[in-house]
Design a protein around this nucleic acid. Structure first.
Length: 598
RNA sequence: GGAGCGGUAGUUAAGUUGGUUAUAACGCCGGCCUGUCACGCCGGAGGCCGCGGGUUCAAGUCCCGUCCGCUCCGCCA
């Protein structure tokens, strides 16, 4: 037990002291941020999670403390007692505690520190490997501490809001039945059931619906989900959802309740008032104008579809694509044309190729609507004028074209739109652009295999007015689903569920899932739905993504205390690892290193 | 599954057409310094150039392979 702590309790955090505290005797604890030894006087910046305070060690004020101060080094953990004094003319404007300093009378070194592998400061640029290996040091950095403090506040505010609106926080299992389809599951072997496995839940979807059947009416959970898919900046193998389900609601009621949550978060955590209701946009409009189902509305550039005129333009490449069922999308970049340099356009072609397009075409619009482009001569005047009209092109503009299959063209052009927006500074970084994306398709059809799959999940309700198309043209059926999009990021998504077994049977049939498969995969859910299920719907928000956006973090790793790398490993604990033969035998598992890695 | 970028003192980087002893800044160690706050001044130590092959009289540099990290496409109902 520390002698210091047996007689002292911390009185203030290091970020708390102000001029009004002058004269107080205080006890502070924290870490040495920096030391400045002047031979006589020694200055120490003491850091804790709330901030930094300057400590003064003057040999004439306290000789013993001054002697210890001379030996202090960065990241030593110490406790001090002392007197708050105003700094007078020596105020440090850069520090929130810069009006005062603490003249130290007593100090205890709780623990010394080796020189850390990187400096504990926000502005230090260090590679990710090192940061992750010494995560506990990285987490000492003020920026990460601020992020995690805000994340905690987001979670608490969410609990408060939902709880005060009648939602119950109910836990659901992580170890669940494996169901094929959808995201790949992590598997957990069952020692008590040789050869059988649990799956780690990719979401609590089915359980929250069962809670509705069970009459709990309003459920939420801040819950970990697990998906064994390839990772990205915004994708961790385990991530956290704010999972919500409500009975007796339609889209309007649910979305309004969620807008309440979002606006409460923005008000209580960020101090920003949002204007409600949030904007709605249909999936069709989003794909048409932005090429994606999560448009970033901070950028005003929009796409347009010029398939019709391109198909009879005389330009062989476009005509060929249109004839084989593809589309031609165009992005109009307002002039003057010089903003888009030749090298920028060339770079764009490489960028676009990463989306699988074969090429990108550019045309500079000149007086009279004439194009300056390599293919200008092969493009008929009539078609060109029509393209100009659709795009709203005026002299000085640059038109960018991609001709591809529907999905590739849209994905690539959606990417190009933001790429150009970024390069030209056309994305308004200080805005919060929310929108509900509504009326998405219920099913997705694989272009190559013609396989049909649920776009969301198989329990999503079709729009009532589209139900009659389930058997005849399922690809045209739109869903009672919605995504909440913020600044081009999908932060949440959900749907009104099917609660009538006849409709569910038709949906399964459209998905070509046999009754046998239905029983095997979802039998318990179908059984449950025989016993008076209420109409219900829900949504799930990505807490990691919300935290990222609200803190302004560039990387998801910066809002997660102990994140994993792109290969799913934890560099600090060095996991995953092989396990002993004995452990494997206990689980009746054999490892096959002879099989090829796919 | 695919594309791109990166790996050189503790850290961040530089390293020319392959050519003497691999630089710099910060940090670290020692000394000096009573008002600094990215303190300052003087001195010093510190290298498996990710790893393994190859080419060459000679490789941090060129070639092949491999590992790790990052970004993106596919994938993520």
């Amino acid at each position: 037990m520390s002698a210091f702590l047996s007689s002292h309790t911390r009185t203030h955090s290091s970020g708390a002291l102000r001029a009004s505290d002058t004269g107080k005797h205080v006890v502070l604890t924290g870490w040495v941020q920096s030391y400045r030894d002047h031979g006589g006087c020694v200055f120490i910046d003491l850091r804790d999670r709330e901030g930094v305070t300057q400590l003064v060690f003057d040999p004439e004020f306290d000789k013993a403390a001054h002697e210890i101060a001379g030996s202090l080094r960065n990241e030593w953990c110490v406790g001090v007692t002392g007197e708050v004094r105003a700094r007078g003319s020596k105020v440090n404007e850069k520090m929130s505690t810069g009006d005062v300093e603490v003249w130290v009378k007593g100090i205890e070194v709780f623990s010394k520190a080796e020189t850390p592998p990187f400096a504990i400061a926000d502005d230090v640029d260090t590679n990710d490997t090192l940061r992750l290996k010494y995560r506990y040091l990285d987490l000492r950095r003020p920026k990460l501490q601020k992020n995690l403090i805000m994340r905690s506040k987001i979670a608490m505010t969410t609990r408060d809001y939902l709880s005060s609106n009648g939602f119950l926080e109910i836990e659901t299992p992580f170890m669940v039945k494996y169901t094929p389809g959808g995201a790949r599951n992590f598997l957990v072997p069952s020692r008590l059931n040789p050869g059988s496995f649990y799956a780690l839940a990719e979401s609590p979807q089915i359980f929250k619906q069962l809670l509705m059947v069970a009459g709990y009416e309003r459920y939420f959970q801040i819950v970990r989900c697990f998906r064994d898919e390839d990772l990205r900046n915004e994708r961790q193998p385990e991530f956290t959802q704010i999972d919500i389900e409500m009975s007796f609601v339609n889209e309007a009621i649910l979305q309004s309740m969620m807008e309440g949550l979002i606006s409460t978060l923005w008000r209580d955590v960020l101090g920003i008032e949002l204007t409600l209701p949030l904007r709605r946009m249909t999936y069709a409009e989003a794909m048409d104008k932005y090429g994606v189902d999560k448009p970033d509305l901070r950028c005003d550039l929009t796409l347009c579809d010029v398939t019709a005129p391109s198909g009879k333009s005389g330009f062989k490449i476009f005509e060929g694509v249109v004839a084989s069922g593809g589309i031609v999308k165009c992005l109009r970049v307002p002039g003057p044309a010089e903003k888009l340099s030749r090298s920028m356009l060339d770079g764009l072609t490489d960028f676009a190729k990463s989306f699988g397009v074969k090429g990108v075409a550019f045309a500079r619009v000149q007086e009279g609507g004439v194009w300056q482009a390599p293919f200008a001569k092969s493009f008929s005047d009539e078609a060109r004028n029509e393209v100009n009209r659709i795009a709203g092109a005026v002299p000085g503009d640059t038109l960018i074209f991609v001709a591809e299959k529907y999905k590739v063209a849209n994905t690539a052009m959606g990417g190009i739109r933001l790429h150009i927006g970024e390069k030209l500074g056309l994305i308004r970084k200080n805005e919060w652009q929310f929108m509900w994306l509504v009326d998405p398709p219920l099913f997705e059809v694989d272009e190559a295999t013609k396989d049909i799959a649920a776009a969301h999940h198989p329990f999503t309700s079709p729009r009532t007015e589209d139900e009659h198309l389930l058997e005849t043209e399922p690809e045209k059926v739109l869903a009672r689903a919605y995504d909440l999009v913020l600044n081009g990021v999908e932060v949440g998504g959900g749907s009104i569920r099917i609660h009538k077994s006849e409709l569910q049977a038709r949906a399964f049939k459209a998905l070509r899932i046999s009754e046998e498969d239905q029983r095997a995969k979802f039998g318990f859910l179908l059984d449950a739905f025989k016993y008076g299920p209420p109409p219900h719907g829900g949504i799930a928000f990505g807490l990691d993504r919300l935290s990222m956006l609200m803190t302004g973090a560039e990387f998801m790793r910066d809002v997660i205390a102990f994140p994993k790398t792109q290969k799913g490993s934890d560099l600090m604990t060095e996991c995953p690892t092989p396990v002993s033969k004995k452990q494997l035998e206990e689980l009746f598992i054999q490892v096959r290193p002879d099989l090829p890695v796919k």
